[in-house]
Every structure is written in structure tokens, then in C-alpha cells.
């Protein structure tokens, strides 16, 4: 069973990534930016940029394993894009008639944009999953509500514990012929399930008492509590955070000025390169999303130079 777990562990392992060594606060600001902006910009070019950069970043993180996830996303994209025109019959350019209803170019484009947005966000979430380990997540929560971080940490330990115990109890019972067999009735199966659950409860309660003793004997609840910070917020974090905030600021400013404007009915029109705000907006947005990838590239080059000097 131990080896099984370590197997799952490797599934989450990521390749050398510079951005993950930054403080969790820096990490979360980036991901919040990427995901929230990604949800608001319903403009094919912006969505396209988000997808491309997201996919590149996911590739640098998990390499080959990304193919499987991307395949799923591609299927989702096609389905979303193709289905939208079936229900949405707005738009003036009719491509063909389906079941006596018009299937329009505008609705197809809109579907593709929406599908693309969903894929982009999934992609960023996949990256988020690789970077934001439970430690980092708890650290951020701890800064907002200190007591919650401890509870989260305890829950994260409890869940795998309970599932392991469940397995242990049912195999122990099967070895004395009390687990029922494939042929046993539904009633019997339910009865067995309840029994296992009741044991699990007494077990958890007993473990809870010991844990409470262990906590109190180590001074829990005797006064003011502090939180051990595994991460430091140093100069490079400040620099990166300021850059990110500036880029996000400009992008939003441009969006307010209409850089992300796209109309789908009756005819499809959108802002295009050459318009000042659109160009500025997309460049800032692109650079912002590229930050983690750029960091990795910068670090790789740095080490190449270091090594060549030795």
C-alpha cells in the first residue's frame, strides 16, 4: 500500500520550476490574476494567448504527462464549440441548416471562444495544482485566519488515515469470513458497511482523544499562538509582485478602455492589433502570463553560463 501511495505522489511531481520557489503569496496572486482575467476576457485573441501560454507552462511543469490532460481539454473544446450554435441561433451568417434551424458562423465563433476560455482556465488550474501544494495553501490560509490553517492541516492527515483504516477493517473481517461474499444480499452488504463504519467511528474517537491529549500536553490552548512560516518574503518576491501588479493594472486599464471588446451579433467584430489599447493590453497580458515560463528560461540560461565558466 505504501508503494501505491508513493506512486500517486510521483504523479504530482513537477519538473524543475523556478516560479514554485517563490513565496506562496506571489504564487497565488499570479494564479488569481491568470484565472480571473481569463474568465472576464471573452475575446478570441486574449483567449488564444491565455491557452497558448497556459499549455506551454503546463508542458514545462509535467512534460509528457500533459498530453493526456490536453487531449481531454481538446475534446471538451470541440464539444463546447460545436454545440453552442445548436442552441444559440443568433447571428446573420448562416453556415447550414440543422434540423430546420440555422447554424450560424457567429454562434460558432462565440462557442469556440467560450470553449477556449474553459480550456484556458482548466489549464491554469492544472498548473495551479502543480505549484500550490497543501503546505502553500495552508500557509496562505494561515495568514488570513490562523486557526483554520491548523484545522486544514489536521483534516489533510485525517482523510487518508480513515481510508487506510477502512481497508484494514474490511480485510480483517474478510479473514474471519465476516465480510460477506459476492453472493451476499444487499441487506447483508448494508449491514456489513454499517458495522465497518461504526468501528471506524470508535477508532476515530479514540484517536481523537489521544490527539487532544498530545495537543494539550504540548501547550495547545495555553495562550497566544504563533504560526511557523516556512516561506520567507524576500526582495525577489517584492520585485516580482510589483511587476505583476503593474502588468495586471495596465491590462485592466486597457480592458476598461475597450481593448477586449468583441461583438458577436448580428455580425462578428472585434478589436484588432493596431488599435493602441488593444495592442498594449494584449502585450501586457501576454507578458504577465509568461512570467513563470520566462523565470524558468532565465534560470536555465543563468546555469548554462555558470557551468560554462567552471
Amino acid at each position: 500500500m505504501v508503494s501505491k501511495q508513493s506512486e500517486i505522489k510521483t504523479m504530482r511531481e513537477i519538473y524543475k520550476d523556478e516560479f514554485s520557489t517563490y513565496n506562496p503569496v506571489t504564487n497565488i496572486v499570479f494564479f488569481l490574476g491568470a484565472i480571473i482575467l481569463g474568465m472576464f476576457f471573452i475575446h478570441p485573441v486574449f483567449v488564444g494567448v491565455s491557452i497558448i501560454v497556459g499549455v506551454i507552462y503546463l508542458f514545462t511543469l509535467i512534460k509528457k504527462r500533459a498530453f493526456k490532460e490536453l487531449l481531454l481539454m481538446l475534446v471538451m473544446f470541440i464539444v463546447l464549440a460545436a454545440i453552442n450554435p445548436v442552441f444559440n441561433r443568433m447571428g446573420a451568417t448562416v453556415l447550414f441548416w440543422l434540423f430546420g434551424k440555422p447554424y450560424t458562423f457567429e454562434a460558432l465563433i462565440y462557442g469556440m471562444t467560450l470553449g477556449g476560455m474553459a480550456v484556458a482556465i482548466l489549464c491554469w488550474f492544472a498548473c495551479y495544482n502543480c505549484i500550490m501544494t497543501s503546505d502553500k495553501f495552508i500557509y496562505i490560509f494561515g495568514r488570513i485566519i490562523p486557526s483554520v490553517s491548523l484545522i486544514l492541516s489536521m483534516i489533510l492527515r485525517l482523510i487518508p488515515n480513515l481510508s487506510r483504516k477502512t481497508k484494514q477493517i474490511s480485510s480483517a473481517r474478510s479473514c474471519i469470513g465476516m465480510a460477506g461474499s459476492a453472493s451476499s444480499s444487499r441487506m447483508e452488504k448494508i449491514r456489513n458497511g454499517t458495522l465497518v463504519l461504526s468501528t471506524l467511528t470508535s477508532w476515530a474517537l479514540e484517536g481523537g482523544i489521544i490527539m487532544a491529549d498530545s495537543m494539550r500536553s504540548r501547550g495547545y490552548g495555553t495562550g497566544k499562538r504563533t504560526t511557523f512560516a516556512k516561506y520567507r518574503f524576500d526582495k525577489r518576491n517584492w520585485v516580482l509582485l510589483i511587476i505583476m501588479v503593474i502588468l495586471i493594472g495596465i491590462t485592466i486599464f486597457c480592458a476598461v478602455k475597450g481593448s477586449t471588446k468583441a461583438e458577436y451579433v448580428p455580425y462578428f467584430t472585434m478589436t484588432w492589433f493596431g488599435e493602441f489599447y488593444m495592442t498594449l493590453g494584449i502585450v501586457c497580458y501576454g507578458i504577465f502570463l509568461l512570467i513563470p515560463v520566462l523565470l524558468t528560461i532565465k534560470e536555465t540560461i543563468k546555469w548554462r553560463i555558470f557551468r560554462s565558466k567552471i
Binding site: S134, S153, M211, S214, R218
Partner: peptide, 18 residues
């Protein structure tokens, strides 16, 4: 049962936090 948190480093720091 006497381990409270999910990470080794956190467990080491637990008493000091308290």
C-alpha cells in the same frame, strides 16, 4: 495518534507555535 499535523516540519514546530 499523537501526531497532529500532516507535515514533518509542521509537527516539529507545533509545540513552539502553541
Amino acid at each position: 495518534s499523537q501526531i497532529v499535523t500532516d507535515k514533518v516540519w509542521h509537527e516539529l514546530a507545533f509545540g513552539l507555535e502553541n
